[in-house]
């Protein structure tokens, strides 16, 4: 474990807890894409299948439970909680995210490190995580505005991915045979997707005006 990875995990945990807290507190999910949240729930469900078979550490297991619990809770709130569901912007959140699931599944069947059930699903979860933010970014552009908590959510998500890249660089130089091309490439693609969002987020912060 290194400081970049710990900071990355904490930032990631805060991003989901901030969003869950927002939805729970103000009983609204305006501006949030349920499709992105469903994709994240699938990412965690397919990546943490080994939670019962392979024990890495208390920390690892605890964080997996936090991510699984928060992502499924957010989807539940947005889909089945009456008050919250009423604020869901169905007309604008129209990204066909099942195509993302399908293409990531096909890609995982083609490109993976080992052809085993767990390994292919793990690779699938990496590909899906890289594109999971797309419905949210599209919704953001459509609604043309962003309340500060959704902005913070995306900002923290991007930050977590950026810190993970520093973690991989650190591990590459400190651990002899630490080479995971698939992880690195998907992580880089995901971070690049956030790049333009960061640009506009920074501009709105610098000029102290609403992000649009």
């Amino acid at each position: 474990m290194n400081i970049f990875r710990l900071a990355g995990d904490m930032t990631h945990m805060f991003s989901v807890l901030v969003l869950l807290l927002k939805i729970h507190t103000i009983k609204s999910c305006a501006g949030v894409s349920v499709k992105t949240q469903e994709l994240y729930a699938i990412v965690f469900a397919t990546r943490y299948l080994d939670i019962f078979t392979s024990f890495v550490s208390i920390y690892n297991t605890f964080m997996k439970l936090v991510f699984l619990g928060s992502s499924f809770s957010i989807v539940w709130y947005m889909r089945y909680h009456k008050a919250v569901h009423r604020t869901y912007d169905r007309e604008q959140d129209t990204f066909r995210h099942w195509f993302l699931v399908l293409s990531c599944l096909l890609l995982a069947l083609l490109i993976h490190e080992k052809f085993t059930f767990l390994e292919v699903l793990w690779t699938f979860s990496l590909y899906l995580e890289a594109v999971a933010i797309l419905p949210q970014l599209v919704l953001l552009q459509r609604t043309r505005n962003i309340d500060n908590l959704t902005g913070q959510y995306i900002f923290l998500l991007g930050g977590y991915r950026g810190l993970y890249i520093l973690n991989w660089i650190y591990r590459y130089f400190t651990e002899p045979h630490f080479v995971h091309w698939i992880t690195w490439i998907t992580g880089l693609v995901q971070t690049l997707l956030y790049a333009d969002f960061f640009y506009y987020y920074f501009l709105s912060w610098k000029n102290n005006k609403k992000l649009n």
Binding site: D50, S54, M63, E119, W122
Partner: peptide
């Protein structure tokens, strides 16, 4: 800390 699947990261 590496699990046998080699996936020790979240």
């Amino acid at each position: 800390e590496d699990a046998e699947t080699g996936h020790d990261e979240l």
